Simulated scan of single mutants.
Amino acid sequence: MVRGGASLSRRMHVGLNLVYLVPGQTGGTEVVARELLPALVAAAGDRIRFTAFVNREAAAAPGGPWKELMPAVTVPVAATNRVQWVRGEQQHLPRLAGRAGVDVLHSLANTGPAWGRCARVVTIHDLIHRFHPDTHGGLKARGMALLVPLAIRRSHRVMADSQSTAEDLVRELRVPRAKIDVVALGVGSTARATPRPEARLRAEHALGDRPIVLTVAAKRPHKNLPRLLEALALVDPARRPVLVVPGYGTAFHDDELGALVARLGIAGDVRLLGWVSDEELEGLYAAASVFAFPSLYEGFGLPVLEAMARGLPVACSDRGSLREVAGDAARRFDPERPGDIADAITAVLDDPAEADRLRAAGRAQAARFTWQATARATLDSYERTLAAFRSRA
């Protein structure tokens, strides 16, 4: 057997680096892990066995495919402490993976260990820390600026969520294109919970009978919510929809958004919600007339596909990965021009035929992205990663 490689007499052993994942606090990267792990296990069958490497928070939390579908090894750190998280990933994880006999270690969320006795592959979801460092705040942005390039250099292969992110890696970090596997994400179940009744939602949030524009987004600068608010203010008050924005907040940006709402005089037209339950979110999807997504930068753009899969017409930014994810199934706009955003939204609201076209096109577009396809492409990347590792041995 080649050093560190799987022999022909046994299954490949893949370790999944989930040291970053704090249940309920990790956002989109947690969604990816929850959806991808079951698909990987199903696609691998008897060919591959998996071990999850989790932090203390994930080990203590109930449920999760990293405990239900595979053995889990606890890395002895609390990942809510960033120093401990880095120490766990860079110091403890390589030793634990070696002790477990891992052949390929897959780091699922942008960073990974710089050393180890096994083949290593890292998934890069985006380069948000480079293009919009204010999203993470000063200290974390500086840390990511060091850790992401380190993981890329020391991994044998790199997975990127989109062609756009792959191009960013080549252009910004000089990653050889031949080292990158583009592995698109999938769309999860479109019925995570029974939708809360529309009448109840409208009463709870004082929405009246107006059309609802829904935006599911974290309150972070790159999500471009200020220009969406400016676009709303440009719509004639007599026909203005109500904008509903669920998503976890960030204190520094929440205050800015609230001040802008007051300055624009649209307090009665905006509902800036925090994190909502699955029942409430599904109810909002069902009640909304348009899904608007004005983000300045996305490594993939899963919220757009989530809306399309639910049959909601989409108006979204014409930037980066959103072009390839949305295709012609969305009404796209220049996210830096509030007037363009307003025109796109009102075009869907005012034209039932266009809304119906987008619903049908969106469902077809979303159906192209499945977690089963993501899992198959990921398994192929594992094979290439192991081959690259063996070639250096």
Rank of each mutant, 00 (worst) to 15 (best):
E172A: 11
A60P: 00
A109V: 08
L8C: 13
W275I: 02
G24Q: 09
H129M: 02
P237H: 06
Q365Y: 10
V175L: 08
R332F: 07
E230T: 08
R357S: 13
A287Y: 04
P335D: 04
L228F: 03
A33W: 13
E336H: 11
S381N: 12
A233M: 07
A360P: 00
G208A: 02
L243D: 00
V121R: 05
E57P: 00
P338H: 11
L173A: 07
H136K: 00
A326G: 12
A151V: 03
P237T: 01
G247R: 07
Q91E: 08
M70S: 08
L281I: 05
L21T: 10
V102W: 06
P352K: 14
S381H: 06
Y20E: 14
Y20L: 11
G88E: 09
L273P: 07
E306W: 01
V270H: 00
L358D: 11
L264T: 07
R363N: 04
V54L: 09
G101Y: 10
G137D: 08
T346C: 13
H136E: 01
L96P: 09
H129L: 01
R271N: 04
D134Q: 13
P338T: 10
S164H: 10
A193E: 07
V54I: 15
V86I: 14
A203V: 02
L358E: 08
F293G: 00
A377I: 04
N55A: 09
A367V: 10
A58C: 11
D318K: 06
L322E: 04
G339Q: 14
L96A: 09
S107W: 12
N224Y: 11
L272F: 06
L281Q: 01
V187G: 03
A39Q: 03
V75T: 12
A344G: 13
R376V: 13
T385G: 12
A292W: 08
A109C: 15
D351K: 12
A59W: 07
H129F: 15
A52N: 12
I152S: 07
A342Y: 09
D278V: 05
E68I: 09
R10E: 15
G116S: 01
P113V: 05
L349N: 11
R99V: 05
D278K: 00
A347V: 10
F369M: 12
Y248I: 03
G274T: 04
P303V: 03
I266W: 05
G327S: 13
R154L: 06
R357L: 14
T215W: 06
L214W: 09
R56N: 01
P197I: 08
T74Y: 02
E167A: 15
A307I: 09
L260I: 04
L147E: 08
A307D: 12
D126T: 04
